[in-house]
Design a protein around this nucleic acid. Structure first.
Length: 268
DNA sequence: AGATTCGCCTGAGAGC
DNA sequence: TGCTCTCAGGCGAATC
């Protein structure tokens, strides 16, 4: 659909996304180039153009790329469009503007940008020894660790809670407390849960939709996320919500016992 | 330096 | 009805 097409022109809107959008000069640089390949790295869509340019689009929370017949009236929150030589327009729509669009003029520049990212959960490099190694000497909650895209990409806030529930690991546990067996469970459950979520088209919590504009339905299968005070699906103990790294985190205190050394707690 | 918090942004939902 | 307030999330920047 996109590969082999020539980009006749590129137009970027005035509003800033997470990063400022490319300027007119860069629009001109893109014009006339042909799409040679499309790939994905983490939440980035990487569109390779000829003469080693790369268009790198991050979808953020609500970003979507779509193809439309040229002349289709722009939708609310459209921020960029690329007119193709087959009279279709690729458009980037992003309600919450947490996405980004970057243009790199060499494979090396893009590689440098991407090299800080950790592996995808499905890569062989994502393993229990890999995690244990990076965790060595550190002291932060395992949930925050899993959400760090320098460690691993693709585990967001919802799935971090679910993966830890499936692994029976308390999200507040410091990474230095985890055993090799727990790291292995986390690796295995990351793959199991993400596979299931992808099959369902993801989780639609509010207004999020996929590239076809459809909602995912994995949210109906979430075991703990968003279920503060509801009974645990395994043991019926009420699920607890805590805030870690500024993000809501959910767990079952019975299935995921807190094994941290006693911490001073204020008594009521 | 590592750990933690903040801020970006819109829309949904709650409460008045 | 219509206002205001709170919350959600990825992730870099700022701060501790």
């Amino acid at each position: 659909m996109l590969i082999g097409r020539k980009i006749k022109s590129a137009v970027f809107g005035p509003l800033k996304l997470r990063l400022p959008l490319p300027d007119r000069k860069i629009s001109k640089q893109i014009a006339g180039k042909k799409v040679t390949a499309v790939r994905r790295r983490a939440k980035y869509v990487v569109i390779e153009l000829d003469s080693a340019s790369l268009l790198v689009i991050h979808l953020g929370m609500t970003g979507r790329l779509g193809l439309f017949p040229s002349g289709t009236p722009p939708a609310k929150h459209d921020h960029a469009s690329w007119l193709l030589d087959n009279d279709l327009e690729m458009r980037f729509n992003d309600t919450r503007r947490f996405g980004s669009i970057q243009v790199f003029d060499s494979e090396e520049a893009a590689a440098e940008f991407f090299e800080t990212l950790g592996p995808d959960p499905f890569w062989a490099a994502f393993s229990a020894p890999y995690l244990a190694d990076l965790a060595r000497g550190r002291n932060l909650p395992v949930k925050s660790f899993l959400m760090d895209n320098r460690i691993v990409t693709g585990i967001g806030n919802i799935y971090a809670s679910e993966i830890l529930f499936a692994s029976r690991v308390n999200p507040t546990t410091s990474v230095r407390e985890l055993t090799p067996g727990q790291w292995l469970k986390i690796v295995e459950n990351s793959r199991i849960i993400l596979t299931a979520a992808i099959a369902c088209g993801g989780s639609t919590i509010a207004d999020y939709v996929n590239s076809s504009g459809e909602k995912g339905y994995f949210q109906t299968k979430l075991k703990v996320y968003g279920r503060d005070r509801e009974p645990c699906p395994k043991c019926c103990e009420p699920i607890v919500q805590v805030r870690l790294g500024g993000r809501a985190s959910y767990y079952c205190p019975n299935c995921q016992p807190d094994v941290r050394p006693r911490k001073t707690k204020k008594k009521p």
